[in-house]
Design a protein around this nucleic acid. Structure first.
Lengths: 334, 334
DNA sequence: TTGTATGCGTTATCAT
DNA sequence: ATGATAACGCATACAA
């Protein structure tokens, strides 16, 4: 059994081009410092034998992996992935590769993943917190000293940049609109309270109620899921004139439950969501909701991480993107 | 500027424990070959200074990265990610980490990604082909010599294992059912014909038509998207009694277009899909469709890749999972 | 059982 | 402008 000559290395190229290894390396990293003649010759050889530098070796030498990690609660949730895509689209132009990890909403898994990412020597991470309980995220991140950007969900106990949207403002605007259109009793279906986005949205709701002097409302706590919206409706003390879902899924679940209970949307009760996810405009009736710029959020998070990685000082600790309300068919004038 | 003593290395541990570097290495990799006394001492030091082996260095030395890559057409499509999750769930038990890449349905991007993955020294990949045109996938994969498993979409020009579902069988069964329930004219809304799954499903449709002697049907070509289903309906020469979508999204789009044209589903026309994606059971009316075991497909692909990576010979070149028809509200007996 | 020395594929330092 | 060589952190063949 002979030695396995798996891949062409920088040495092969050097030999074939009749130059030293360092010249090849220079052509790759500082092309301007090599004479035109040699540079062209080396480039030709590189292409001929399809040489690709071994990133592992490069990483070992430079200490830089050109890899960033993403940590999101659910790898099958299109919203999280659209954020990830936004960040990737920005960062790949800077030459980065990506590792995307899902925590299944578990803080324990989140810790495990963070360690794994660290062991892989990622240069930085963008994280949307799991929202799980007893998170040791703070200690971990502090100890690991990993460059970190929080996306969509902030984590107050850590002093790291945050990119998110104006959750409270969006919900408040929508609640105001509901009041303007004559609704007088409300229910708010809150997502996981362990997440900052759920808390902020709820706060927006409360802000509007207080500002407008409305006291006839009910708040129910659940998850950011279709099923949760469905179940929460069945716990209403009294059917309200308007129900606000913590997100679109919750709102959609609520609509189904309502219609099963014999209440017609929007004729008898109005329902609104938050997200403006893909399907919301196609559901029947189409969903009135608060639109948040998901992809853009990721893109901005990518920018911020890049700042961190390239050593630039952050001028601002947080980026808050605006939300807008999208009027469709699930709200009627009363 | 002093040298940056970023991380504790195997040498620090060795020095602190008063042993050689190789002993530390052995404690990590072949603990049984070290005396109890030294082993315990080394382990204590490792824990004290929180030493974690540098995976990069380890990879360079062993040639093994313990990383596999996933290449899928769209990173924001929950179906693809559920497959990925299936594969990850299997492979992570074997100690692997993952890089997930989306090609945006572009063959060019697919090539770029494959090269990048190779440069990252992934040990193998699981790929769902982009379906883009003029793919140089065959050459690339052959040349790179990367261990590869095709998932969901096969690529006939390459002799690599394939894990998929019985697309043709599922559609055929559903078409048979439609015929049994009295439907006499059909339309098939086909997804990207560059993908094997679209072609196989279409073939299933044709098989059923021929087998049952039905000639009154129309085939329209588009994409696997909601919008495509919506648009294709408006190109019907004649509204059929039953329309079959290339997937659920297409079917859902078709339903909306039909209702806008004034046709009621299922009273006037029946519609079926393929996938049984999350939302299909909640849409109004809920969608009758062919269910395919998405997660399981990924899990099986993970198994197959593991076989490849651990050097086992493949006993079978392909794994085809069964599909089942799910009866809901979008089909009526005629 | 333990230690010494070599090399994995790069990049960077230092000569020339 | 170019080349020889050390070093990155680790695993292993070989020596002791």
């Amino acid at each position: 059994m002979k030695k396995k000559e798996n891949r062409v290395s920088i040495r092969h190229v050097a030999k074939l081009a009749g130059v030293s290894v360092s010249t090849v390396s220079r052509v790759l990293n500082h092309p301007e410092s090599v004479s035109d003649e040699l540079r062209e010759k080396v480039i030709r050889v590189i292409e001929e034998c399809r040489y690709r530098p071994n990133q592992i070796a490069r990483s070992l030498r430079t200490g830089l992996t050109k890899v960033v990690g993403f940590v999101i609660p659910d790898i099958t949730n299109p919203a999280f992935l659209l954020m990830v895509k936004g960040a990737e689209d920005y960062l790949k132009k800077k030459g980065y590769s990506f590792i995307v990890c899902g925590t299944d909403h578990s803080a324990k898994e989140e810790s495990r993943i963070l360690r794994a990412l660290m062991a892989q020597n990622v240069e930085g991470i963008i994280i949307t917190c799991s929202g799980g309980q007893r998170s040791e995220l703070a200690n971990l991140l502090r100890h690991l000293g990993l460059k970190t950007v929080f996306m969509d969900r902030r984590y107050e106990r850590i002093d790291a940049p945050y990119v998110g949207v104006d959750n409270a403002g969006g919900v408040e605007k929508m609640a105001d609109y509901l009041i303007e259109t004559g609704h007088r009793s409300f229910a708010y279906l809150c997502g996981e309270r362990t997440t900052s986005s759920a808390r902020e949205r709820l706060q927006g709701f409360i802000n509007s109620m207080q500002k407008n002097g409305v006291t006839n409302y009910e708040i129910l706590y659940g998850q950011f899921t279709f099923e949760s919206g469905y179940e929460l409706v069945r716990k209403f003390k009294k059917i309200p004139e308007a129900v606000m879902g913590g997100n679109d899924l919750v709102a959609l679940g609520a609509i189904v439950a309502l219609s099963e209970l014999g209440y017609r949307v929007p004729d008898e009760v109005s329902v609104v969501g938050f997200d403006d996810m893909f399907y919301s405009k196609y559901s029947k009736p189409s969903l009135t909701t608060v639109r948040q710029p998901i992809y853009k959020m990721g893109f901005e998070a990518g920018k911020v991480l890049w700042k961190l990685l390239s050593g630039g000082r952050m001028q601002q600790k947080e980026v808050i993107l605006p939300t807008e309300i999208v009027l469709r068919e699930t709200v009627r004038q009363r």
